[in-house]
Nucleic acid binder design. Structure first.
Lengths: 225, 225
DNA sequence: TGGTGTGAATGCCTTCACAGCG
DNA sequence: CGCTGTGAAGGCATTCACACCA
């Protein structure tokens, strides 16, 4: 292992409170670094990295500075090293067992999506209430009745849950996920759901993304995300 | 029509430059208002609306003030009226013809997703390069070869494009969408794509959303979106 | 009384600019 | 010389607090 001496502790975690926007950009940095690595790029400067993503060089450096010192003056950042560090920060250096609830069109698409496992998110089980689906295997994942959620979450040590059920069922499903001891929820149902503070929640509303786009087209502002 | 007299012009557009975050919240307001309306709620105050979404009352009022005056002192906001106004601002009072490019798992799920049409986004055509798919109808939408994109975008007056192809093909598809005269792109491929400034761009990276979640779980911050 | 709209104050994030290092 | 890390400055966005209205 590279035993560099004076360099801040290899950032095990976030120091104080990191702006949400910074964490968001971290994901962009990681994605870009992974592309660069695939192309064989070894090092990159903050300005080059920023340019590719539409951020300033100062922003890149400040963002990374929240978590430690990763750069080499005169050189830039070593892509592999930095990617590794960001993975550790985001948690994608570990495996995250995931449960999917709701095996409709969207749910099935998510089960088949390769991008998740590449970042360490692995589906352990899927759940639904439709008797047609229960007992089947989809993309290699077994579908269980929703009632078996607590049992299987615990036995498979599942930490994250994805909600892909109709809006009307989303809050009830969220409640059951929370009861089952899940730590974070990604909600695709187009409703606001509430969870206790010790559970993390991220929502994605596909129609809302299109709304942001139509607004942007109508008022012709610059690009968004 | 309700002929109220002194009240700012019914906000045809955004005045100067509206923060992106405000536009984002507008979508949340609209979604919540639509729920409220379904429950028969007539009016709501900024504090009630904010509470349901985790925003402060001042924030709600400020956000709306960017676009005009919608509230009634002592009463709050009339849900129907406000929803209507926000739809006009976001552009979802009109119909937006949409083209889907990439009819894999995710693409098919999007074609079948009801939530889009409810907000005025209607798929006019889908495109792929897989001979297996071309000529078929999926969820009532015809799948064409990608080469026919310019022709069909123009004949159907398609304004928005959704990219649901592998990362490696995304930029090329984006270029073709732009050439075809599309005005906005929603990109689901996990890559940064670039488009000319007159074209709007919104990106959604599903794995990135899970990364935000795992970070949040690891560092146990409060909920995100 | 209950609630909006809005200037003023606050606080946070981004950008600047430069010392320091390889 | 090139490029990082970072205090200081600047610019936005959010919150406060209050005049005003029904």
């Amino acid at each position: 292992m590279p035993g560099r001496s004076k360099r801040k502790p290899p950032e095990p975690a976030a120091p104080k409170s990191v702006p949400q926007a910074v964490v968001n950009r971290l994901s962009y940095y990681l994605r870009e670094l992974q592309h660069l690595l695939r192309q064989g790029v070894q090092t990159i400067s903050s300005s080059q990295l920023g340019q590719r993503l539409g951020f300033t060089d100062a922003q890149v450096r400040k963002d990374l500075a929240y978590f430690g010192q990763f750069g080499y003056p005169g050189i830039g950042y070593r892509c592999h090293e930095l990617a590794e560090a960001i993975r550790r920060i985001l948690g994608t250096d570990q495996q995250w067992p995931v449960a999917l609830v709701g095996v409709g069109h969207l749910g099935q698409a998510l089960l088949g999506y390769k991008g998740f496992s590449q970042q360490g998110f692995v589906f352990e089980a899927a759940f639904d209430v439709d008797p047609e689906l229960i007992g089947r295997q989809l993309a290699g994942i077994r579908v269980y009745h929703l009632d078996r959620l607590p049992q299987i979450v615990q036995s498979h040590k599942i930490r994250l849950g994805i909600i892909a059920v109709p809006a009307s069922a989303a809050q009830a499903v969220a409640d059951r996920l929370v009861e089952s001891g899940i730590q974070g929820i990604l909600n695709f149902a187009p409703v606001t759901i509430t969870v206790p503070p010790q559970v993390s929640l991220v929502g994605v509303d596909l129609a809302m993304e299109l709304e942001q786009l139509s607004f942007s087209v109508l008022h012709r502002q610059r690009e968004s995300r």
